[in-house]
């Protein structure tokens, strides 16, 4: 008895040691892989910079985004206004920093909301065959209408407000997510390990939430980053068309919209917000691809 206990204790010690060793090793490996992953590295840097611009930019910029100084209108980039001014004499850098808040928060909320509801719909459709037809036909119907058109119609019906833009864009992107999740989940539902869990007596919600859902995350992350980027573009397009964030609130699309009339006199009004939009889309796509490679356990050797 005594010997057995001693042995038990030894085994446990060994186990704890192995656990510690493994954890340390893993941390090192994870960090190294994170750095080596170009997509996450560059995409991450771009997104961190843009987020910093959105969060802290408005604190540091010296001007008020709404204050019009008629004498300073359409000033070229220079010492006084770093990136120039717009047609009302508002500082462009200031407006772009505030616009970053609007654009990024629209993008983030849309991608989070669309992923949540899309995942819900996709998982339900994949697991319950009776729901599949109903849900997927609704999604097909929504996807038949071009995204921007549907968004314009929804915003026009709901009224141009930031919340309504987010809602409209969420409705536009949910079917995409639902499809991706459903197609991934249908494959996984038929795997033997799902059957094994069912045979063990697990409840349905447990199977769906803990076993099927995590396996759909890889394609979902990629989709989420694309939606984030797409939502920024679409919001810009909506604002550009006058159906998005209402003036005088700045968003990158709004500034573009204001700039299009003066494109020959004041190129900076179109170029700088355009660069930000392109940069954020590029960064998000890099990040999405990087994360997908990163979380795949098969590459974690």
């Amino acid at each position: 008895m005594h010997v057995a206990q001693e042995q038990d204790k030894l085994l446990k010690d060994e186990f704890i040691l192995a656990k510690k060793r493994l954890k340390r090793h893993q941390k090192k490996l994870l960090f190294r892989r994170l750095i080596r992953n170009r997509g996450i590295l560059f995409g991450g840097i771009i997104m961190v910079l843009l987020t910093l611009l959105a969060v802290f930019g408005p604190i540091f910029v010296p001007y008020d985004p709404y204050e019009m100084v008629v004498t300073d209108r359409l000033m070229a980039p220079g010492a006084q206004h770093f990136l120039g001014t717009d047609n009302f004499g508002r500082d462009l850098l200031t407006r772009m920093a505030y616009g970053a808040r609007v654009s990024l928060s629209v993008g983030l909320s849309v991608s989070l909301l669309a992923c949540f509801f899309g995942m819900l719909i996709g998982l339900l459709a994949s697991y319950f065959k009776a729901l599949d037809n109903v849900l997927m036909r609704i999604c097909d119907g929504l996807m038949a209408i071009p995204g921007v058109l549907l968004a314009i119609a929804l915003v026009a019906a709901l009224g141009p407000k930031m919340e309504n833009v987010i809602l409209a864009l969420t409705i536009v992107f949910v079917p995409n997510v639902a499809r991706v999740v459903r197609s991934a989940a249908i494959v996984i539902r038929e795997e033997t390990y799902i059957e094994a869990i069912r045979a063990q007596g697990a409840k349905t919600w447990r199977i769906i939430v803990l076993h099927i859902a995590p396996n759909t995350v890889a394609p979902l992350i990629v989709q989420a980053s694309f939606i984030f980027a797409d939502a920024i573009i679409t919001e810009a397009a909506l604002s550009f068309l006058g159906a998005g964030i209402p003036a005088p609130d700045p968003s990158w699309g709004n500034i573009l919209h204001d700039g299009k009339v003066f494109i020959f006199n004041a190129w900076w009004m179109t170029v700088f917000p355009g660069i930000l939009i392109v940069l954020s889309v590029f960064g998000l796509n890099l990040l999405g691809d990087g994360i997908r490679d990163y979380i795949d356990p098969h590459t974690s050797k």
């Binding site: 795997e191 094994a196 045979a199």
Partner: peptide, 19 residues
């Protein structure tokens, strides 16, 4: 009942959750 009746599957590759 399923607690008392368990199953071992044929394919050892697909019967474990890879994640």
């Amino acid at each position: 009942t399923r607690e008392e009746i368990q199953m071992v599957f044929q394919d050892p590759y697909s019967s474990l959750n890879p994640r």
